[in-house]
Design a protein around this nucleic acid. Structure first.
Length: 655
RNA sequence: GCCGAAGUAGCUCAACGGCAGAGCAACGGUUUCGUAAACCGUAGGUUGUGGGUUCAAAUCCCAUCUUCGGCUCCA
């Protein structure tokens, strides 16, 4: 210990819960070392009363202390934060004119934004990595220093003169905050304005990889200058890095765009237009099965199904408010006999118009109208992405019109329905977001509170983990969004449940109450899958193209070994077809090996091979796409498949 | 829309100023073969599109379209 022996003792609650008296000014590093040699070796930082700090931070008051090691999640935060600095150190060494902006930690790694006239090339990334490794090998200490307000103000001027306008702007922002502390971190010749914390020295930064370069706006605002962002990832153990890189590779193999082509599911064509999907027969078959299930589930759930056209007169969109609030996302209109028509970006105004089509009684409510409604939205060219972001897509939309006293039950039913639907398709990982009343809103605050409470109750009843997006609701009502996670760890919004206090007003929707007076109904918008296109894309990645049997475009292929067993094999195929299974028959004009290879490539769930042995015994040799083989009686095999379809088995282990 | 990269046969890729090629797929024939690639042959491309430089352009330049990695935005 370097602390004077007469320093006052301070009670510190240690990681194991015991309280220890330590000399004031002891550093976390010293305490870590005193806890255990092994632990001290792997310690990278500390948590003081829950806040992350550098290991070198002195303890000056009573507190609870936890040591952050290379083995916990926060340890990775320290590592990656320091990685960003190491990268900036290397970049500014290689190209001294480069201005640095910000370099935070993200889900699987880190990035740093740079302002440099020349674009970074893949070769540059290799050079940067090389310099980074050199600095890491030197184990440069990472040192924190703090500045007085006066010094910091001087630093702002210094940044401005040196052209470091981004740092100047950040520092000015910090100085604008009450009671803020300005700290810098240095390693080698590199110093960066930074809050910390960091690992003790660059020697910890061994196992990393720079992944890509991309443009990014300064402060995320598209009116600002575009900077160059370099992404990277880092771990403490080489095995973890390898595993992560392998996961990225696996994700690439599962990419729905790649599988969409390989499995002949869908295509995007120059002659049709960007973001407009052609569903090939095999993809269309999966979609058909999805929709069939969806429709039946809706009828079973007390919904009525409706249809509406793809275009409507501009006056409808004026009344709904879309021409004033949503015009940038709408395809431009077409002139028909002097009237302007617009392609629909949403289905709600049609259902609302239908509601108004006749007088409604309190006895009619709730009305639950669902539609697989195809909408068109003008999305900016750079955002289009396979099936996950397109310009023409089909929402599994529904609008519910109910009385205020029915709101709670209807919301609960919808949340139950969402979960049932997602689980049937094999999704068990999702994150819910509850968005509450924003500053600008329409409707009665009391109603908002009631609706928000009802949404919250529905989430909690189902034990769904959720985050509250305070003030994140639409101006017309609170909502729940559900996001699915795809194979790259990206979250995609699919399901949404929204309360709407606005459209009933705009369209003056009413119903006659038991009191004989006109009342305003509440309206709910909801989509369970979100859009068929996006959900299908997620589905492809989720299953890596190996759809569960009930969804597979072709469920079983029958392969006779030679012409002698053709009649028997055709009989097997007929039985499968009559049992409602999507069956393909491929005769013996091709080699068995090549037929199996094709079926494997298309990820067909089952192959039934029949030869002389099976024909004589009345059996089939069943091969699954995972390569398992077994001999079964024909009727037994057919029955097994029928049951697998009926139960909507996903083939995935329960989460 | 913005920053960067890329478009060659249905797919995966080669040729990188000097005659545009291979494998798989397709098609024709041979093969009847017991669980992930049988054999032989045939056909297939104004190198995304338009313009320019050059004796000569897939290759260099400009424009444009599309795609990819991101940013912003979103189901």
């Amino acid at each position: 210990m370097t602390v004077a022996s007469d320093a006052p003792a301070i009670p510190v609650t240690m990681p194991d819960g015991t309280v220890r008296e330590v000399p004031c000014g002891s550093t976390c590093a010293e305490l870590a070392a005193s806890i255990s040699r092994g632990l001290a070796k792997k310690a990278v930082g500390a948590r003081i009363d829950g806040t992350l700090r550098d290991l070198a931070t002195p303890i000056v008051g009573p507190c609870a202390l936890t040591i952050v090691t290379t083995d916990d999640g926060d340890g990775l935060y320290f590592l990656r934060h320091s990685m960003a600095h190491l990268m900036a150190e290397a970049v500014t060494e290689l190209w001294p004119d480069t201005k640095v902006a910000i370099g935070p930690v993200i889900a699987d790694g880190f990035y740093y934004d740079f302002d440099r006239a020349e674009p970074f090339t893949p070769e540059d990334l290799a050079r940067i990595e090389e310099v980074m490794r050199r600095h890491a090998a030197a184990a440069e200490p990472i040192v924190r220093s703090e500045m007085s307000r006066e010094e910091a103000e001087q630093a702002v001027r210094h940044f401005r003169e040196g052209g470091e306008l981004y740092k100047a702007e950040i520092l000015e922002g910090i100085l604008g905050e009450e009671g803020s502390v300005v700290s810098f971190y240095s390693q080698g010749a590199f110093t960066d304005l930074c809050e910390g914390p960091h690992v003790p020295d660059t020697g910890f930064l061994k196992h990393f990889k720079l992944l890509s370069v991309a443009g990014a706006y300064w402060r995320g605002n598209e009116k600002n200058k575009m900077l160059q962002r370099i992404y990277g990832t880092a771990f403490y153990k080489p095995a973890d890095l390898d595993a992560h890189l392998q996961k990225l590779e696996e994700a690439q193999k599962r990419d729905h765009r790649k599988l969409g082509r390989e499995l002949d599911l869908f295509g995007v064509y120059d002659d049709i237009g960007p973001g407009l999907i052609l569903w090939h027969p095999r993809g269309a078959r999966v979609r058909h099965e999805m929709e069939t299930y969806w429709r039946q589930a809706h009828y079973d759930g007390g919904y009525d199904l409706v249809y509406s056209p793809h275009i409507a007169k501009v006056t409808l969109w004026e009344r709904s408010g879309h021409t004033s609030h949503y015009k940038d996302n709408m395809f431009s209109g077409m002139d028909v006999e002097g009237q302007e028509y617009l392609a629909k970006p949403m289905n709600c105004p049609f259902h609302v118009t239908m509601y108004k089509g006749k007088g409604r009684s309190y006895r009619d409510l709730p009305l639950r109208w669902a539609e697989l409604g195809t909408v068109y939205r003008y999305e900016r060219s750079g955002v289009l992405h396979g099936l996950l972001r397109v310009r023409g897509f089909t929402q599994d939309d529904a609008h519910l019109f109910c009385r205020v006293d029915q709101l709670g039950e209807e919301l609960d039913r919808v949340v139950t329905f969402v979960l049932e639907m997602l689980r049937t398709f094999g999704f068990t990982k999702f994150q819910a977001y509850l968005a509450t009343r924003p500053e600008k809103y329409v409707g009665e605050p009391a109603l908002w509170d009631e609706a928000t409470a009802a949404l919250r109750a529905a989430l909690e009843k189902h034990g769904l983990p959720y985050e509250v997006d305070e003030g994140g609701g639409a101006f017309y009502g609170p909502k729940i969004d559900l996001k699915l996670e795809d194979s790259l760890g990206r979250q995609w919004q699919c399901s949404t449940v929204q309360v709407d206090f606005n459209l009933p007003e705009r369209f003056d929707l009413t119903y006659k109450g038991s009191d004989g007076k006109e009342h305003r109904p509440v309206m709910l918008h909801r989509a369970l899958l979100g859009s068929i296109e996006r959900f299908f894309g997620c589905l492809v990645e989720h299953y890596a193209g190996a759809f569960p049997l009930w969804l597979a475009p072709v469920q079983v292929e029958v392969f006779p070994l030679n012409e002698e067993v053709d009649a028997f094999a055709r009989d097997v195929a007929d039985k499968l077809t009559r049992a409602g299974l999507r069956t393909e028959y491929r005769d013996a004009s091709e080699h068995l090996n090549s037929r199996i290879k094709d079926a494997q490539r298309l990820k067909t769930p089952y192959m039934f091979v029949v030869g002389k042995r099976e024909a004589e015994a009345g059996t089939v040799a069943v091969r699954t796409r995972s390569g398992k083989q077994s001999i079964m009686a024909v009727d037994e095999a057919v029955g097994k498949l029928v049951e697998e379809v009926r139960s909507h088995a996903t083939g995935l282990p329960e989460a």
